[in-house]
Design a protein around this nucleic acid. Structure first.
Lengths: 191, 191, 191, 191
DNA sequence: GATGAATGAGTTTTCATTCAT
DNA sequence: AATGAATGAAAACTCATTCAT
């Protein structure tokens, strides 16, 4: 109607949600625009009207994923307070992330897309990784005040998570999350 | 007739190498059999003569990758001896792995393929991860004898490596490898 | 949106007709989708838009053939009345069917396809044969009322027709249709 | 070795047998030369050495089939003597032919091939059909001496057989062979 | 005589994108 | 704004045939 709401934002959201759903199930390459259109219940023509190329749509899916991940991380950090031990926090975060198979798959499918495409998806991912590392660092600073190594520890935490996610997605059912968490939180405290 | 000389092994190797090269550059899905044939300098028919399906070819590429990775890991562990500190060993391994961008890309492209395909690639990856974890654990047991946490530490090391590789592949040029290595080897020693 | 007008029915019909024509000329296996698309004057992509697989298209060609055959048989039976002798009816039917070379070729090509493919084409053919036999039996019951052998005679008629069609398609120009018809109708009357 | 036995006749026979076997199972089009070579245990090169084209091989398969069929028919006719009734003979022949599913399939696959190819297979089939009709006529003349209609009856018998074979191959399990045979032999006798 | 590596023209199928309505 | 019919370029795969050894 008006210039601001060009292209019904509600439908736009539905498209992105459907795309994310299908990508999560099958990966970017195996998800066709016809699939997405069918899932939303619109025609391919309409889909094209909202997203001129598949890359544009993936862009928005990624954006949505980035925002959600960042919000989740921030929510965790906000919840950190004195009553919780480092071990408890780590344990909660590791379990939640590693056991969310759908999210993990999407994560890797989008990274794969970033590596393959020639656009700026790689840069956007890098930027996000820095942002997420910073959020984690902030959280760590509340648990272990006055410890110089927080940035390094944040990177270790994020890397470990990514690596464990990968194994979880591959089907590793016996990841010793508790032991890993204990090791990491102990080493953090001893610093 | 003779099973050993069936289908010129030299050409077979060339095909796998070309496939690995192209996959490393563009990913599995974006690498067509025509691309591979053209790179090797053979016809698509000949490629089919050597590999009846794309999956067969990917299988061998993966096999080759698995073998090389395992050999590299074993070589490192064999080199571990008293004169080296844990820090030195970790540093060497992390630098070598993280900075090998080609290998890292291939690693992720193959994992992506494992997640998407319906075959047994996931199982093969899982098996390899267990094997690699065990190799690392053996190495750690030489550096930190009589330490019960070696298995967990091995998983942390591998996960960290995977996570850092991912960021490296995405283009993160400022990974504080030394600091991370120091943190990990210190925490390992303190246990 | 509307199910009825989905995919221009006119073009759909043109495709089936072209497919039937080409199959009649060359058989199912020797008729490529590219041939059909070229004959209709559309792209292979458009052909796919109307028929996602070759099997789907063959299905419709077969359906059309079944319907036409059944209609023709029913029309004949409807025309049976007292003024006609059994010999006249048989003669008309045998001449019409045996001399329609195109129809006969299509018949055998489709049966061949039924024998080779793993789908349900065999079952559909069997069902149709039962239906056709029943139609013939109904016709016979009008010519030879109160004769218990009508079912057997119907099978003999259909089998004879199939066998003669086969020879006609192979090029036998001297099938003694009249003599055969006389023999069959006489034997039927004598029962 | 010598000019007469060029190309080991034994191997040639093995090739034809293997080809017939595979064609009987899957049809001509779905049987590749590689399949045949593999079944015989020779290379595709050797196969090509014996049969320069696939058509040549099919030619010999057909020849063999023609010879066997003619021999079988002749054997039946030779066995006809006074002690047997027409009904007994018909019954034996119909059962034997209709229930030999493999032979029936081969029969239709080869006819299909005759209709499709541009060679002289059609003519050869026609010739054989005339020969077979003549053999049957000879047999009938022993059972029903001094009956002018033997040629027509022979055609009816052959056509009926072809038609019934077709339905048998399609999977019709309830062909009333006895009733059909009785009808045919009675009508023959009444003439 | 026999081999099997190599080929290329062919097949069916897929799908992002375009565009007239 | 929305549609869906149409496209073309590409994909993986098949296989009869050729030919150097």
């Amino acid at each position: 109607m008006c210039a601001v709401t060009r292209r019904d934002p509600q439908l736009r959201l539905e498209i992105v949600n459907a795309a994310r759903l299908l990508i999560t199930e099958k990966g970017v390459d195996s998800t066709s625009l016809a699939d997405i259109a069918r899932t939303v219940g619109i025609s391919k023509g309409t889909l094209f009207y909202y997203y001129a190329t598949k890359a544009d749509l993936i862009f928005d899916v990624t954006d949505q994923y980035f925002d959600q991940t960042t919000r989740t991380l921030n929510a965790w950090v906000d919840e950190v307070h004195d009553a919780l031990t480092a071990n408890e926090i780590f344990s909660h975060v590791f379990h939640t992330i590693i056991e969310d198979e759908l999210r993990s798959k999407l994560h890797h499918y989008l990274i794969e897309q970033a590596l393959t495409e020639n656009g700026n998806l790689k840069d956007r991912f890098l930027e996000k990784y820095q942002e997420w590392t910073e959020v984690i660092r902030t959280g760590l600073s509340r648990v272990f005040p006055a410890n110089g190594d927080q940035e390094v520890l944040a990177m270790i935490v994020i890397s470990c998570l990514d690596g464990l996610i990968l194994q979880a997605v591959l089907g590793n059912k016996s990841i010793p999350i508790e032991a890993i968490v204990t090791h990491l939180s102990t080493s953090a405290a001893e610093k």
